[in-house]
C-alpha cells in the first residue's frame, strides 16, 4: 500500500509530462511571411535589378533618370508592417552604389515624398517646396500579392512580389521583375 502511494504520484506526473510533450509534437505551422521571407524577397529583387537588361542598356550618356521610391503595396492577406515595406525598397535601392549609378548610368534617387515630414498631410510650406524641387521622372515601387488555397487543416499561400520602375511621363514600365514562392501551413494556431 505504501509502495503504491509512492509510485502513483510519480506515474501521474510522468503521464502528464508525456501528454504535454506529445501535444507539442503536432504544433501548428504558419504560412505567414517571416523575417527570412522579407529578407529573401529584398535580396532576390535587388539581385534582379543589378543583373537587369534595363541597367545594362544604360550608360552615362543615357537621359537622366530621377527615381522616387515608394513603399511596397500590400495586396496579400498578411499584415505586413510599414517598416518591412520600406525595408524591401531601401534594400533594393542600396544594392548599387549611389555614386556608381549616378556616374555610370545617370540615375539618381530622391528622398521619398513620405519621408518629407510624413508626407503631404503634415508638410509645411517649406516642405512642400522641397518636395516640388525633387522633380522625379520615374517611380520605383513593388506590389506583394498572394493566392490562398486551403483544405481542412492544410493551407498554402502563394506569394508574388512584383517590382517595377514606371516612367511618370509616358506611363511606360521600364523595368519589371518579380519574386515568387509558396508557404505551407498545417493545423490551426488557435487550437
Amino acid at each position: 500500500m505504501i509502495r503504491l502511494c509512492r509510485t502513483l504520484p510519480v506515474a501521474f506526473v510522468v503521464v502528464l509530462a508525456a501528454i504535454s510533450l506529445g501535444a507539442c509534437a503536432g504544433a501548428p505551422k504558419s504560412s505567414r511571411l517571416s523575417v527570412d521571407d522579407v529578407e529573401f524577397t529584398a535580396q532576390e529583387l535587388s539581385a534582379k535589378l543589378t543583373d537587369s537588361k534595363f541597367l545594362a542598356d544604360r550608360d552615362s550618356e543615357s537621359p537622366r533618370m530621377v527615381v522616387a521610391i515608394n513603399k511596397v503595396e500590400n495586396l496579400t492577406t498578411d499584415v505586413i508592417p510599414e517598416a518591412d515595406e520600406w525595408y524591401i525598397m531601401e534594400r533594393v535601392r542600396g544594392s548599387r552604389s549611389m555614386e556608381a549609378l549616378k556616374r555610370l548610368k545617370n540615375i539618381v534617387f530622391v528622398v521619398p515624398i513620405d519621408h518629407i515630414r510624413g508626407g503631404q498631410a503634415q508638410a509645411s510650406e517649406f516642405d512642400r517646396l522641397v518636395a516640388l524641387g525633387r522633380k522625379p521622372t520615374h517611380e520605383m515601387s513593388a506590389t506583394f500579392r498572394s493566392a490562398v488555397r486551403s483544405s481542412g487543416e492544410h493551407r498554402t499561400d502563394a506569394y508574388l512580389c512584383e517590382m517595377r520602375i514606371t516612367d511618370l511621363t509616358s506611363r511606360e514600365l521600364v523595368f519589371l521583375e518579380s519574386v515568387e514562392f509558396k508557404k505551407t501551413a498545417v493545423g490551426k494556431a488557435y487550437d
Partner: peptide, 9 residues
C-alpha cells in the same frame, strides 16, 4: 499557441 514558420516551397 503560435504557428511555427515553415520553409518556402
Amino acid at each position: 499557441p503560435k504557428g511555427e514558420q515553415t520553409r518556402r516551397v
